[in-house]
């Protein structure tokens, strides 16, 4: 029982990341009808926003004092400038670099999304899906290589805040012995964060006028346009929002996996599978499939399961995707006529 609860917890965090990326992908499909292979690259850009934020905060300046090292040479003492400016609050700021980086990620990713949509995606509405895939695939390569040129090819570790690090003991909640169900605190935070973002997006679409117009536009773009609403502008904004969601998912994921330039590609393939399993065009499907596949992946990584079928954890997602597509070709919650030509 404990092992099962532990695997559920494990799956939630991974599922959260899949769900966030898949949500953005589905929003882009649904609104603009574009297949965005560069979405993984947006996740990666978000992760590097956190890296940039941390290096900005930890930028060190010389204090003017000199210190002798163990070898007798003298070096200038440097301290992070935020510490000089804000004292203890500066140190806390450095510690909380990852959550603080959200402040940087949101504007950066919104701008990146806007520029990408206006500059490139706009010209591909009417082109075949194959060409949309290809051009965004090319863009993904370019973005990854630019990041590689700037930050190098090695993963850059970004620590979580000390207060949210370490293990959390969930044994009490489930009535087990203390110390049996422990789980990295940050992963739980990540799950809560992703659930929060998903909730906000759904509320935004459901309860605001803007969201209502967007949903109407997803149903029938032409009619909404005929009613005198500039639906193109709103769809562009939704593209930027999707980019922002992917970016936030990436920024908060940095303490779990140290980001390198290739991280987006790894997530992209999986989140496409998630979108297809959930049903293309269905936001609820994308989110639930994200969590479902995350859970399946963590369960198949259990030693008991692996003893029966070795290596199942590496292929389970693809296997499930193939079976789902064959049994329910539209995915779990897919609607008729979405992307079927």
């Amino acid at each position: 029982m404990d092992a099962i609860i532990l695997q559920v917890l494990n799956g939630l965090e991974k599922g959260g990341a899949y769900a966030l990326i898949a949500l953005g992908l589905t929003l882009i499909f649904g609104t603009l009808g574009v297949v965005n292979f560069a979405h993984g690259a947006l996740f990666m850009l978000g992760a590097f926003c956190a890296v940039i934020m941390r290096s900005l905060l930890t930028y060190e300046v010389a204090t003017g004092e000199v210190e002798a090292t163990a070898w007798g040479t003298e070096v200038a003492v440097t301290t992070p400038y935020v510490t000089n400016l804000f004292g203890d609050f500066g140190n806390t700021l450095i510690d909380w670099a990852v959550p603080v980086s959200i402040l940087l990620t949101i504007p950066v990713m919104l701008i990146v999304g806007l520029v990408m949509e206006r500059g490139l995606i706009r010209h591909f509405y009417k082109r075949p899906h194959a060409e949309q895939i290809l051009v965004t695939f090319g863009l993904a390569i370019v973005l990854a290589e630019l990041i590689k040129a700037q930050f190098g090819a090695n993963p850059i570790p970004v620590p979580e805040p000390a207060a949210l690090g370490g293990m959390a003991d969930f044994s009490g909640i489930f009535g087990s012995e203390p110390g049996t169900i422990t789980y990295p605190m940050w992963r739980f935070v990540y799950f809560l964060f992703s659930a929060f973002i998903i909730l906000v997006v759904f509320c935004f679409l459901k309860f605001t006028t803007f969201g209502m117009v967007v949903r109407a536009g997803m149903e029938d773009r032409e009619t909404v346009g005929l009613l005198g609403i500039n639906i193109g502008k709103r769809f562009t904004f939704m593209f930027a929002v999707s980019a922002m969601i992917a970016g936030l998912a990436g920024a908060m994921y940095t303490p779990i996996i140290s980001p390198d330039y290739n991280i987006g590609m790894e997530f992209l393939v999986l989140s496409f599978v998630v979108v297809v399993v959930g049903g293309m065009g269905s936001l609820g499907g994308a989110v639930s499939a994200g969590f479902l596949l995350g859970l399946l992946q963590s369960f198949s990584a259990m030693n008991e399961v692996k003893a029966i079928i070795p290596g199942i954890d590496q292929i389970i997602i693809y296997l499930v995707a193939i079976i789902v597509l064959l049994v329910r070709p539209r995915g779990l919650m897919g609607r008729k006529g979405v992307m079927e030509t």
């Binding site: 292929i315 193939i322 597509l325 079927e340």
Partner: peptide, 29 residues
Amino acid sequence: VSLRRSGIYFSILTLAFAQMCYAIAYSDL
């Protein structure tokens, strides 16, 4: 199997199969 669907679904299915083959070969499952 893959040709039961077309368009983007076909691309994803072939991608899923290829990734599966890669995982199988890489770990010699």
